[in-house]
Amino acid sequence: MVQEKRGFSLSGYLVFVVLIALHLVFFAMMATTSQYGGVIGNVLTALCWPGFFMVQPNQAKVLTLFGSYVGSVRNTGLRWTIPLFAKRTISLRIRNFESAKIKVNDNLGNPIEIATIVVWSVTDSAEAVFEVDDYESYVSIQSEAALRNMASSYAYDPQDENEVALRSHPQAIADKLKQEIQERLGRAGVTVLEARISHLAYAQEIASAMLQRQQATAIIAARAKIVEGAVGMVEMALERLKAQNVVELDEERKAVMVSNLLVVLCGDKSTQPVVNTGSLY
């Protein structure tokens, strides 16, 4: 693998002053002592001018000599290097990539739609240039491939409390997705700073059925909570009636009372009580 190394460069401001001074010296030579030497000196000095280049903040210049990598320059400002070096600009700035919505089957075989946002930057300019053909396209394709592979490894909804799922554990899924993408982009000199799910939904052909299932699950959970509370209230009522000797109830009357209380407490509509104005029985 070709890894980044520091390339040769000098301060462009210093070299600019030196070249101007050399031109003045060689012009003076042409006018006084050696016209031939002054001409050669001016020609050689003029050949040094193409060595100047600019490096913007968060940029790198990849230097090559006849196809061979000789180093990268990250020093910002006006720089100078050997004029024979070819220079290619690589941006080191942080970038965002949002994938398209892709359809994939989750771990249970349910078709879902999913998309991601990846925050990345180039950290090794040599790998980005020489290890892959087009590192921007490489990031796009490999991110979607990693997203597809990760989504097929987890279920959309958890089947139990301890299971990691796409919808219920966003942070764990984001960490896994970031790791998956980084493993694929490491050879391209790219570092993934963040990766998160930007869109997650069931596919249209099963969205209605899955919504009904989620509603049924929520209703069952709510009913279970209501029944649990109602049973506790009935137990408390019987214990307090017995402790305070309010009324003596046989087993049959207790069963009737329990049935009536459960109907009142667990019913989803208001009940219509019947008032007994006669005897207890």
Rank of each mutant, 00 (worst) to 15 (best):
S140M: 12
I141W: 03
S143W: 07
S143V: 07
E144D: 08
A145V: 04
A146N: 03
L147N: 05
L147W: 04
R148F: 06
R148T: 12
N149D: 15
N149R: 07
N149K: 09
M150R: 03
A151M: 09
S152I: 01
S152T: 06
S153V: 01
S153F: 03
A155M: 07
A155K: 10
A155P: 06
Y156L: 14
Y156H: 12
D157Y: 06
Q159K: 11
D160R: 07
V164C: 06
A165T: 03
R167A: 15
R167G: 00
S168H: 10
S168Q: 12
S168W: 03
P170K: 06
Q171S: 10
Q171V: 11
Q171D: 14
I173G: 03
I173Q: 05
A174W: 02
D175Q: 11
K176V: 08
K176E: 15
L177H: 05
K178Q: 14
K178N: 09
K178T: 08
Q179F: 02
Q179A: 14
Q179M: 11
E180A: 15
I181G: 04
Q182V: 06
Q182A: 12
Q182G: 09
E183K: 11
R184G: 01
L185N: 08
L185I: 09
G186K: 14
G186Y: 09
R187H: 05
R187S: 11
A188L: 10
G189W: 09
G189S: 09
V190T: 07
V190S: 08
T191Y: 04
V192I: 15
V192M: 08
V192D: 08
V192F: 04
L193P: 00
E194C: 01
E194M: 09
R196T: 13
R196F: 01
S198A: 13
H199W: 08
A201T: 06
Y202M: 12
A203L: 07
A203Q: 10
I206F: 05
I206D: 06
S208K: 11
S208A: 14
S208Y: 03
A209L: 14
M210T: 03
M210K: 15
R213H: 05
R213T: 11
R213I: 14
R213A: 13
R213Q: 15
Q214D: 13
Q214I: 06
Q215Y: 01
T217Y: 02
T217F: 02
T217C: 01
A218I: 05
A218N: 09
I219A: 12
I219G: 00
I219F: 03
I219E: 13
I219Y: 02
I220E: 15
I220F: 02
A222E: 15
R223E: 15
A224P: 01
K225C: 01
K225Q: 13
I226G: 01
I226E: 05
E228D: 14
E228A: 09
G229T: 04
A230Q: 09
V231P: 00
G232E: 15
M233R: 10
M233T: 07
V234P: 01
E235T: 06
M236S: 12
L238F: 15
L238K: 06
L241Q: 05
K242Y: 04
